[in-house]
Design a binder for these strands. Sequence first.
DNA 1: GAGCAGGATCCTC
DNA 2: GAGGATCCTGCTC
Length: 325
Amino acid sequence: MSMGSPGCEHTGCTTPLHSPLYISHTHTDTMAWLDEADDIKPPRSLLGLPELRWPGVYLPYYDRLALEESPWVLRMTEAPAPAAPPSSTPEPNQAKPSQPQDPPSGTEGQVEERCLEQVQTMVVGEVLKDVDTACKLLNIAPDPLDWNCVDVQKWLLWTEHLHKLPQVSMMFQELSGRDLCSMTEADFRQRSSQFGDMLYAHLDIWRSAAAMKERCPPEVIADDNSWSDVMRIYPSQPIHLWQFLRDLLLKPHNYSRCIRWLNKEKGIFKIEDSALVARLWGMRKNRPAMNYDKLSRSIRQYYKKGIIRKPDVSRRLVYQFVNPV
DNA sequence: GAGCAGGATCCTC
DNA sequence: GAGGATCCTGCTC
């Protein structure tokens, strides 16, 4: 499947589909999974709409969960599904009159529905995991309504970093989460004509995720890694630097460009972008002046404690957990 | 110049 | 007191 160009010219929908935040680009592992899952095909209504792949797959799940507070969901689901565009070079099986393509048989339709359900569940799981991770790393509540002004700024800085946006946070100063949630998409665009719709869509995902968490029992949306389990068990514990680093390492689809494992079994990791890791740590600890010099000093304090050390073959920006998971 | 090592001091919880 | 932030000097790559 190809992603194609952004936009929604097929449906005429006004929803800002160019926004990567409909399905965050952080879900690269999910996207890779989809690319590899050749045996799982989307419904025929989605074929021929490559640029609508994610919204098309994603939205029905939200629709099923009746997230009526997400207007962009409703707009999309209301849009008529257009027919697949004619192919100039039809595939051999399409030419066979004995294998009519439309309408799909009942069994075929059920298979499509099951496949779609699998994809939807997986995608939503990834969204919730990413929101969960961001909450832990930023030390903010999952529900935007609970954010204070500082939390809002953290979230904005985080979103800037994650999606490589220019500085937009200054356009939303002195706003609480409740203020933010009461704003319309137009209000967002008024503050940032270029990225307001992206932020609005992203905030919508967070609000939807918060609503979903209220509906779903914890075990349904539980992260499957043991480290996050520890974080859930001790949510009020102040996070340590080594915990923070390990949390980043355990989310490679989000943070591999700033920190990654060199040898996970031995606990050896490399900080790829020292400035960014320091900035993230500073955000987590409310220390705007944090830099890598300070962060690395804190790492070196772990040498004496036997938590982190330099690997046997010392390399720049490479460290090793003494007791890897 | 960037990263590393480690001492010293201060702050917060 | 523990953990971390900050500042510092000196060294290596």
